[in-house]
């Protein structure tokens, strides 16, 4: 196991380099001259040239990349064009907001998805199964910005809290924007978590159905184990193995979804930051956010792989 973890960590190095190359190239693929933008559209040519020289934009690509990489490794992601502040500072606490949002959403997805998947699988083709899978299909097909808007419409604007409920003095159940309080967190988390919950539910169901037919489940029953034990101890642990992988992949989509969700709910997270940065052509900031998001994704998948390895004893550790 130890060897595996070390090997898996070493494997992230080329991935990391690949990510930096792509992120670095982004700057040069996007139309528009950063120096020109920084200087302003009517700036004289030599001023633009000055800025270009200062940013090292005249160096050959490999040199530029090398400078970029060594800066990144030192934690320097450059300065925002618009604000002039450190990109790391700009990202700063917004990073944690997005991580929080993503984390709660994943927890919600896994929680709802597992329960729905197990319940469906245990009573395959029952009314319960069909209903749950229908709901999952809905959750899967609904674009999350739409779901977000609807939730705002219903629970933050439309439906007032009845006056006979004590202790809540707000006029609405939840708040339509911002981040921090419970009332602000609920709707975005539901918005972002629904799609994942649906996918996990469907995956868990099919995985459980497969596992329930296995010989060792029959062994467990023949041993006299209670049905509850058979399902949760013997079946679920095995059924989780493919689900874990899905959760990891899910995380990528989740980061994408966070951009939309944060925009819809006006949350000051990384998603919103990146949208604003793109609109302002603030390249260093875009680069920085994309890089951080990619690394987050790599990190989550590292954790997922290690969990997978832990669950799946059949893989030889050597």
């Amino acid at each position: 196991m130890f060897v595996f973890i070390i090997r898996r960590i070493l494997q992230t190095i080329p991935v990391f380099l690949g990510v930096t190359i792509i992120v670095f190239s982004l700057m040069h693929l996007i139309p528009g001259d950063p120096a020109q933008i920084m200087a302003g559209e009517s700036a004289p040519a030599e001023q633009v040239e000055n800025i270009r020289e200062r940013l090292g934009l005249n160096d050959p690509y490999p040199v530029q990349y090398w400078n970029y990489l060594s800066n990144v490794l030192q934690g320097d992601l450059g300065n925002s064009i618009r604000s002039g502040r450190d990109v790391t500072t700009e990202i700063g606490h917004r990073f944690w907001i997005t991580v929080e949002l993503a984390f709660y959403s994943i927890v919600l997805s896994v929680f709802l998805g597992l329960i729905a998947g197990i319940v469906s699988a245990v009573k395959q083709y029952s009314f319960r199964d069909v209903t749950l899978m229908l709901i999952a299909l809905f959750g899967l097909s609904m674009p999350n910005f739409w779901l977000g808007l609807m939730l705002i419409q219903w629970f933050a604007i439309g439906l007032d809290v009845p006056s006979w409920i004590p202790f809540i003095d707000n006029t609405a159940w939840f708040k339509p924007s911002g981040w921090g309080s419970f009332q602000q967190i609920v709707l975005p988390v539901i918005t972002l978590g629904t799609g994942g919950a649906a996918i996990i539910a469907r995956m868990t169901r099919s995985s459980m159905l497969e596992v329930i037919d296995q010989d060792y489940i029959r062994t467990a029953r023949a041993k006299g184990a209670k049905e509850r034990v058979v399902i949760y101890r013997h079946a679920l642990k095995n059924a989780l193995i493919p689900v874990v992988t899905v959760v990891g992949l899910q995380f990528g989509g989740l980061l994408g979804g966070a951009v939309l969700t944060e925009t819809v709910f006006a949350i000051n997270g990384m998603g919103k930051l990146v949208i604003d940065a793109i609109q302002a052509r603030d390249f260093p900031l875009v680069q920085g956010t994309v890089l951080v998001a990619s690394l987050l994704f790599v990190l989550v998948n590292l954790i997922v792989d290690i969990t997978y390895r832990y669950l799946n004893k059949r893989i030889d550790f050597n």
Binding site: Q214, D215, Y216, R218, T219, A220, H234, K237, N238, L311, N312, K313, R314
Partner: peptide, 8 residues
């Protein structure tokens, strides 16, 4: 081969 639970 398959009658024992691989995860325990």
């Amino acid at each position: 081969m398959t009658s024992l639970n691989p995860t325990y």
